[in-house]
Design a protein around this nucleic acid. Structure first.
Lengths: 201, 201, 201, 201
DNA sequence: GATGAATGAGAATTCATTCAT
DNA sequence: TATGAATGAATTCTCATTCAT
C-alpha cells in the first residue's frame, strides 16, 4: 500500500513502536512493583520515553492495563506453544505441564505474578474482562481445539492449574516440579479425568 | 475479680474497639475500592475515626493489611463452620461446597474479591505470608483435621477450589451453584479422589 | 539571531526566573527561621509560588539547599569584590576586613548566620560539600590568586576569620569593628604572618 | 540529711537519673542525626524511656537543648583537663592542641559536630546563650586562669581553633594532626603571639 | 508524679492531568 | 502530533501536644 507522504508512515511506525515500548515497559513495571507501581512516570522511565507520552498514547491507566494484559496473553500463548511441541504421548502430560508451571513459578515468578495481578484486576474493571476471557479461551483451546469435552471438567482442570500457581506464588517455598506433577496427576488421571475432558478417548 | 483501676481496662477496651473498627473498615474499603483504595484517609472516613488514628494503631499500611487479612481468615473460618454443620453424608459434599462457593461469589462477591486481592498481595509482601499461610492451613485442617491424606491431593483439591472462585470472579457471568457442583464432582469423586484425600475410606 | 520558536525561550526564561526566585526565597527563609524552617510550604509562600513548584524545580530539599549554598557563595564573592576595591596599602587590610566582618555580623546578621548554618550542614550532607568547598576556594583565591603562600598559614588565617564570625554570631553583644580589628592584627601581623601567607613580601 | 519519706528521695533520685538519661540520649541523637533529629520520640527511644517523659521533664525542646549544650561543655572540660596534664613545656603546646583537635575531628567527629551545631544554634535561641558563653569562658580560662593577657589576642586564638575545627568537619578529607600543628604554629608563635596572650612571658 | 492514648498539623514526595506551544 | 512545564490533590509518615487516669 503506497502513501503520498512516506514520512507519515515513518511517523506512524514510530508511534506504533513507541506504543509498543510503553506496553512492554508496563508489563515489566507490574512484574517489578506490582500494579500499584503503574504510574505515568514509572512507565515512562522504564520505557525511555517522555512522561507525557504515556498519557498521550493511552487515555487512561486502565486503557494501558488492558493493552498490557492482552499483550501478556499473546506472550503466554507463544510460551505454551513452545512447550506443547515437546510432549509426545498423553502419559507425559502431567510431567510436561508440571515443568511448565515450575518454570513459570521459579524463573518467571515476577512475570507470572504480574499476569495474575492483571487477571484478578479484571474482576474489578470490566474493561479488562475481554482480555481475561481471551486468556481462558486460549488455554481451553489448547486442550482439544475448543471442541468436545465436558466444559465443567475443563473448568475444573484449569481451575486447579490456576489455583496451584496461585498458591505457589504465595508460598514461602514454592513447590518443585515433582510436587506439582504429583498434584496434577489427581486432576489428570487418564482413566477418568482426562477422558472426561475429552483429551483422551 | 475487681480492679482498682477499671479505667485502664476501659481505655484498653476502647483502644481495642477502635483498632477493630479500623480493621473492619479496611476490609470494607478493600471490598469496595480494591487494595489501591487503601489509604489513611479512606480507612479513617470509613471507620469514622480521625485520620491520624489509622497511623496510630498501625505502624504502616502493611501492618494494617496483615491484620485485615488475618481477620478475614477468622471470618471465613466462622462461615465454613456454619456450613459444615449442615452437611450429613459424604455424598452431599460437592453440593454443599458448591453452594458455599456460589454464595461467596454472588452475595459476598466484593468481600471475596477483597480476600483474594489480599491473598495475592502476600506474593509480594512477605509480611503477609503468615496470614496467607494461616488461610491455607485452616482450609486444609477442615478436611481431615490436618492428619492423613495425600498432601499433594489435598493441594490439588484446594487449588481447584481457589481456581474456580478466581475464574468466577473474573467471569462476566458467574457460574451457578449447579455448574460449580458439576465441576467440583470431578475433583471430589468418591471412588478415587476423596479416597486419596483421606476424606473417605 | 532570530528564532522560530521564541516561546520556548520565553518559557525557559520563566522557568529560570522561578527557579531563581525559589533559591532566593530559601536563603531568606534560612536567614529568618534557620534550616529547620526550610520546607516546601515555607519556601513556596516566601517565593510566592505554588507549593508543588518547589518540588518540581528541585528533586529534594537537599538539592535546594545545595543550590542555595552555591548561590550564597556567589553573593559573598560580589560583596568581597566590592570591598577589596576599597583598600589601598597592606596596612589597611586589618581595618578593611574588620569592617567587612562587622557589617556581616551587624547589618547582615541573619544572612551571615544562614550561610554558616548551610556551611556546617555540609559536614553532614556530602551533597553540600562541593558548594562548601567552593566557598573556601573562593576565599582563599582572594588572598594571592590561589598561588604561593604557605597553605597552613592560609588555613589558619581563614580559620581565624571564620571563628571570629562564629563567636560574634553567638555572643550576646557582638564585637565592634574596632575590636575585630584588634583581634585580626594578631593574625595579620605584617612582619611574620602576612609574609608567610605571601600577601606581602 | 535525713528524710521522713525515704521513698521520696528514691523517686527524686530516679527522676534525676531519668532526666540525666534524656540529656545523654539527646547528645547522642544530635551526634547521630543532627539537631533536625531531635524529637520527643527519637530521644525517648534512644534513652529507653516512655515518649511522654521527654515532654514531662523538659517543657520544651529548647529547654532540652540548653541542658544538653551545658552538659556537653562539662564533658569537654573533662577532656581538656586530661590533655593539659600531658603537656610539659610551652614548646609542646602546638603539638598537644593539634593532637587534641585531631582526635575531636577523627575519633569523636560526630560528637564534635553535635557540639558545633548546638553552639551555632545559640545564635538563634537566646536561651542557649549562657551555655555557649560558658563554653567560651571555660576555654579562655584554661589559658591563663582567666586573668591577664590581651583579650583580643585571646579571642583571635580561640577563633582560629574554632575555625580550624569547623573547616575540618566540612572538609572531604580532614587534616592530620601534623597539618593542624603547622597551622596552629602560626597563631601560637612563642615570640609574638603567645606572649601577647600572656601564656608565656 | 508520670504516662499511654489520641489527634490536628505538617513534613516530603508522587501523581494524573492540563496547558501552551 | 507530541511534549516540557506546571500544579492541585493525595499519599504515608512523623511530630508536639493535650488529656484522662
Amino acid at each position: 500500500m503506497s502513501s503520498q507522504k512516506p514520512e507519515v508512515d515513518g511517523r506512524r511506525a514510530k508511534g506504533a513502536r513507541r506504543r509498543r515500548a510503553i506496553v512492554d515497559a508496563t508489563l515489566r513495571v507490574v512484574a517489578r512493583d506490582g500494579i500499584a507501581g503503574v504510574s505515568h512516570r514509572n512507565i515512562a522511565r522504564e520505557a525511555g520515553v517522555p512522561a507525557a507520552s504515556v498519557g498521550y498514547y493511552f487515555d487512561s491507566i486502565d486503557d494501558l492495563l488492558v493493552a498490557t494484559l492482552l499483550d501478556s496473553v499473546e506472550v503466554l500463548i507463544a510460551e505454551i506453544d513452545r512447550m506443547t511441541s515437546e510432549v509426545g504421548s498423553d502419559e507425559q502430560w502431567p510431567g510436561v505441564v508440571a515443568r511448565m508451571l515450575a518454570r513459570m513459578i521459579d524463573e518467571h515468578r515476577e512475570r507470572t505474578l504480574a499476569e495474575y495481578e492483571l487477571y484478578l484486576l479484571a474482576a474489578r474493571r470490566p474493561a479488562l474482562r475481554p482480555a481475561a476471557r481471551r486468556w481462558i479461551e486460549v488455554a481451553t483451546g489448547y486442550v482439544n481445539g475448543g471442541e468436545g469435552g465436558d466444559p465443567h471438567a475443563m473448568r475444573a482442570f484449569f481451575a486447579a492449574i490456576d489455583g496451584l500457581v496461585l498458591q505457589a506464588l504465595v508460598a514461602d517455598e514454592p513447590p518443585t516440579a515433582e510436587e506439582l506433577e504429583a498434584s496434577l496427576r489427581y486432576v489428570m488421571q487418564p482413566g477418568s479425568y482426562l477422558r472426561s475432558l475429552g483429551v483422551i478417548s
